[in-house]
Amino acid sequence: MKMAVISEHLGLSWAELARELQFSVEDINRIRVENPNSLLEQSVALLNLWVIREGQNANMENLYTALQSIDRGEIVNMLE
Results as ranks from 00 to 15, higher is better:
Ile70His: 05
Leu17Val: 03
Asn77Ala: 14
Leu40Ile: 14
Val5Ala: 08
Ala58Asn: 15
Ile28Asn: 01
Ser43Gly: 13
Asp71Gly: 15
Ala15Thr: 13
Leu40Asn: 06
Ala15His: 08
Leu10Gly: 00
Asn59Pro: 08
Ser7Ile: 05
Ser69Ala: 12
Val25Glu: 14
Leu47His: 04
Trp50Asp: 03
Glu41Pro: 04
Ala45Tyr: 04
Ile75Pro: 04
Leu39Arg: 04
Glu26Ser: 12
Val76Trp: 06
Asn59Leu: 09
Val33Met: 13
Asn37Leu: 09
Gly73Arg: 07
Ile28Thr: 05
Glu41Cys: 09
Val33Ser: 13
Ser38Trp: 02
Val76Gln: 04
Arg32Met: 06
Ile70Thr: 03
Glu74Val: 01
Glu41Trp: 04
Ala18His: 01
Ile70Asn: 02
Met3Asn: 02
Val76Gly: 04
Trp50Phe: 03
Leu40Trp: 15
Val51Cys: 15
Leu46Pro: 01
Gln56Glu: 14
Trp50Cys: 03
Phe23Asp: 03
Glu20Thr: 10
Asn48Asp: 15
Phe23Lys: 02
Ser38Pro: 01
Trp14Asn: 01
Gly11Leu: 05
Met3Ala: 05
Asp71Trp: 01
Glu16Met: 08
Val33Cys: 15
Ile6Val: 15
Asn57His: 08
Ala4Cys: 06
Leu79Asp: 04
Tyr64Val: 08
Glu20Ala: 10
Gly11Tyr: 05
Met78Trp: 09
Met78His: 09
Arg19Glu: 14
Val76Arg: 08
Ile75Arg: 00
Arg30Thr: 08
Gly55Pro: 03
Leu12Glu: 04
Asn62Trp: 07
Leu46Cys: 10
Ser7Met: 01
Glu41Ala: 11
Asn29Phe: 06
Ala15Pro: 13
Arg30Lys: 14
Leu39Thr: 15
Val33Asp: 13
Leu10Met: 02
Val5Gln: 05
Leu21Ala: 00
Ser7Gly: 09
Gly11Val: 02
Arg19Lys: 12
Lys2Gly: 10
Asn35Trp: 08
Ile31Gly: 00
Val5Ser: 06
His9Cys: 13
Ile70Arg: 05
Ala15Leu: 14
Met78Glu: 08
Glu34Pro: 00
Glu61Gly: 05
Leu47Asp: 02
Gln56Pro: 12
Leu47Met: 14
Trp50Val: 00
Ile70Glu: 02
Asn62Glu: 09
Ile70Lys: 02
Gln56Tyr: 10
Glu41Ile: 04
Ala45Asp: 07
Ser7Gln: 06
Leu40Pro: 05
Glu74Thr: 02
Ile28Ser: 02
Val33Ala: 15
Gly73Lys: 07
Glu80Phe: 13
Ser24Met: 05
Met3Ile: 15
Ser43Ala: 12
Ala4Gly: 14
Glu20Trp: 06
Glu26Gln: 10
Ile52Gly: 06
Asn29Gly: 10
Gln56Phe: 14
Phe23Ser: 01
Glu26Ile: 07
Met60Ala: 06
Ser13Gly: 08
Arg53Met: 04
Glu80Ser: 12
Leu67Gln: 02
Ile75Tyr: 03
Ala15Ser: 14
Ala58Asp: 09
Ile75Phe: 02
Leu47Ala: 01
Ala58Ser: 11
Glu16Ser: 14
Asn57Arg: 09
Ala18Ser: 00
Leu67Thr: 00
Asn35Ser: 13
